[in-house]
Write a protein that binds this DNA or RNA. Structure first.
Lengths: 327, 327
DNA sequence: TTGCGTATTGTGAGCGTTAACATTGGAACT
DNA sequence: AGTTCCAATGTTAACGCTCACAATACGCAA
C-alpha cells in the first residue's frame, strides 16, 4: 500500500480511501491511485485489514456427519449463501459430538478470527452444547426445534413428517408405521412427533415405533421385523437411505411396493427418483435453509437483532412408492 | 499478550517464548506466565500472528459440483487430513468451471491469506487452468492424469476401470459395454481409457461408447438405448448413480440383472450395496486421497519438494450385479 | 482583501504478534 | 579478580492496514 501511495504521490490513507470508495477523493487523485494499483498489481492484505478492523469477512461452519446427505447439503447451502454475501467459509467437521467438542470447535474458530459461526446441530448433544455458548462471538444453529437461546434456522421437520403421514392416510391406509432415525438426533425426534400428531389428529392408532441409524443397512434390518407384521400397509421412513434398505429387503421377500406396502421417505436424495419403485419422499430446500441461516448470522454480526427462529417448509414429492390401500 | 506480560512481570517476548515452548525460559518464569495466561484467559490472536509471520495455518480448497459424491467425499477427506495437521480449511465452491474462474478463486484465496490451495479439478477446464497458475502460492490438484505442471494427487481411474472390465471379462462375457460420464470430465476419460485398454488387452471388440452426465436420469436414458442392443451381456457404468438409472430402466423393461446383463458401477456410494441387486462397483478411498493430497501440499508449503504425482489405487467390490455369462 | 466553510489530503497511533538483536547476570574457568 | 560464555530476558522494529484527528487547499461571500 505504501508503494502504491508513493507511486501515486499521495498518502497511504488516500489509497485506503480509494479502496473503500470513499466519496471525498477527487476524480483525478482516484485515477492516479487506481493506475498505481494496477501498475503494481497491488492486492490488499486481508490479514492486515482483519487485524486493524477486527473483522475478517470469514464465517465458520461446524458440521458433523458430513457423510449424510442432509448435513452435506446444508453445509454447501451455507457456503453458497456466504459466498454470495462475500464471506469466506471455514469448515470444521466434528468426529463425534458432545458439548465439549462443540464448544471447543467454536472457540477454535473464534481464535482463528471468524466473524461468526453456524453450527449444523443434528444431534441433541450439539443443540445442548449451544446453550452453554459464551456469546463472545455470534453463533447461530441449524437445528430442529427452537429449544436454544441462540438463533436457529430450521427445516420444519414436523410439518414434513405430518404431510407424509397424511398423504398415506388420505390414500385410505388405516394407519402408518414409522421407521425413525436415531433417538439422539433432533431431526429424528421431530419427525416422530410430526408423524404421531398427524396420526392422532386423524384418529388412527399409533403403531410401535421402529428405530434405525439412517443407513440403508439399518433400513434393511428393520424391514426384517416389518415382514412379520401382517397388517402393515403404509410405512413412513425417516430418510431415503433407510427407505432404500427397506425396499431392498421387501423386494427380496416378494413384498410389493406399493402393491402390498406404501412407502414414503425423507430428504429426496438425488437417487430417490430412481429407486425401484421411485420413492415418494419429502424434499428439503437446503439452499434456502443456508440462505436463511446466513441472514440470521449476518444480522447477529451487524448487531441488528432479528427474528430468532426461521423455519423453512419442506415439500412432499409424490412418486410411485405410494398407492391407495387395498380393501 | 501485553496484559499477560504485565501480570507475570515479564516482557511480551517472554510470553511469546512460553507460547512457543522455547527452551530457554526458566521454569519459574514459565510457570508465572502460564498462570497469568490462565488467569486472564488469554488466547493468542491468530490474525496478528498471521500478519507477523506471513503464515495463517489455513488452507483453501476449491471444488466444483459439490453435489456429486466423489467431489464431496474428496473435500471432506481433505478437511479431515488438514484438521489432523492442525490446519483450518476454507472452502470455495465454483458454480461453473473455466480457466478464469479457477484462477480467480485461487487469487481470492491467496488474498485471503491461505498458505496453500488444493483444487479438486474434475473438469478438463479446471486442469487446464492450473497450467496457468502464477505460482506465487503453493497449489496442488486432485485430478485424474498427470498432465499438469503442479503436483497432483489422484485416484487411479484407469486401474479401477480396467479392474471392472477384466472382472466382467473373466466371468465369460464376450465384451463389455461402457456408459461413460461427460467428455469434459477428466475422470470420465480416464475410465474410458482403462476400459478400452482392458478390452484390447483381452482381444475383445470395443463396442460403441455411450455417454451420460453422471445423473441417474442420464443412466435411465442410456438404458433406453441399451435395451435395443441384443448382444449386450455386460456393462460397465461410469458411476453408481447412472448405474442406478440403468437398473431402474432395465427393471421396468424386465431385463434382469445379473441374469441378462451384468453391471458394474464406480464410486461405491453408500447406497450401492442396497440397490436391487446390490451393485458390484469400484470403491475409492477418499480419506486416503485427502491425506496424500495434504502431504503434497504441506511439502510444497514447507518448501521440501517431493514427489509430484501420487496415485491411490481403487478397489473392486464384487456384489450381486455381476454373474457368469450364459452360454 | 479577509475570512469562513467545506472538500480533500495527510499524520500518527494503534491492532497483537514475531524476528532480530541487545542486554543482563551468573557460573565456570584461568 | 578477570575473562569468557551462555542462559535468560528485554527492546525495538516490523507486518499492512484502519481510525481518529489534523492540516491544507479551494471556493465564495462579505
Amino acid at each position: 500500500m505504501a508503494d502504491v501511495a508513493r507511486l501515486a504521490g499521495v498518502s497511504h490513507q488516500t489509497v485506503s480511501r480509494v479502496l473503500h470508495d470513499n466519496p471525498n477523493v477527487s476524480g483525478r487523485t482516484r485515477e492516479r491511485v487506481l493506475a498505481a494499483i494496477k501498475q503494481l498489481n497491488y492486492r490488499p492484505n486481508s490479514t492486515a485489514r482483519a487485524l486493524a478492523t477486527g473483522r475478517s469477512k470469514t464465517l465458520g461452519v461446524i458440521s458433523s456427519d458430513t457423510k449424510l446427505y442432509g448435513s452435506a447439503a446444508t453445509l454447501f447451502g451455507i457456503e453458497r449463501a456466504a459466498h454470495d454475501a462475500d464471506y469466506a467459509v471455514v469448515v470444521t467437521s466434528l468426529r463425534s459430538v458432545n458439548r465439549e467438542l462443540v464448544l471447543e470447535a467454536i472457540q477454535r474458530l473464534r481464535d482463528q478470527g471468524v466473524d461468526g459461526v453456524a453450527v449444523i446441530a443434528t444431534l441433541r448433544a450439539g443443540v445442548d452444547a449451544l446453550r452453554h455458548v459464551t456469546p463472545d462471538i455470534p453463533v447461530v444453529a441449524l437445528a430442529a426445534g427452537q429449544h436454544t437461546s441462540i438463533p436457529v434456522a430450521s427445516m420444519d421437520q414436523r410439518a414434513g413428517a405430518a404431510a407424509a403421514t397424511r398423504h398415506l392416510l388420505s390414500l385410505g391406509h388405516k394407519t402408518v408405521w414409522h421407521l425413525a432415525g436415531p433417538v439422539d438426533w433432533q431431526q429424528a425426534e421431530e419427525r416422530v412427533a410430526g408423524w404421531k400428531s398427524a396420526l392422532q389428529a386423524a384418529g388412527a392408532t399409533v403403531p410401535p415405533l421402529l428405530r434405525g441409524d439412517w443407513s440403508p443397512r439399518s433400513g434393511y434390518a428393520a424391514a426384517e421385523q416389518l415382514l412379520k407384521t401382517p397388517d402393515l400397509t403404509a410405512l413412513f421412513v425417516g430418510n431415503d437411505q433407510m427407505a432404500l434398505g427397506v425396499l431392498r429387503r421387501f423386494s427380496e421377500a416378494g413384498r410389493e411396493v406399493p402393491g402390498d406396502v406404501s412407502l414414503v421417505g425423507f430428504d429426496d436424495i438425488p437417487e430417490a427418483a430412481y429407486f425401484s419403485p421411485p420413492l415418494t419422499t419429502v424434499r428439503q430446500d437446503f439452499a434456502e435453509l443456508g440462505k436463511r441461516c446466513l441472514e440470521l448470522l449476518l444480522a447477529r454480526i451487524e448487531g441488528t437483532e432479528q427474528a430468532t427462529l426461521l423455519v423453512v417448509p419442506p415439500e412432499l414429492v409424490v412418486r410411485e412408492s405410494t398407492a391407495a390401500a387395498r380393501r
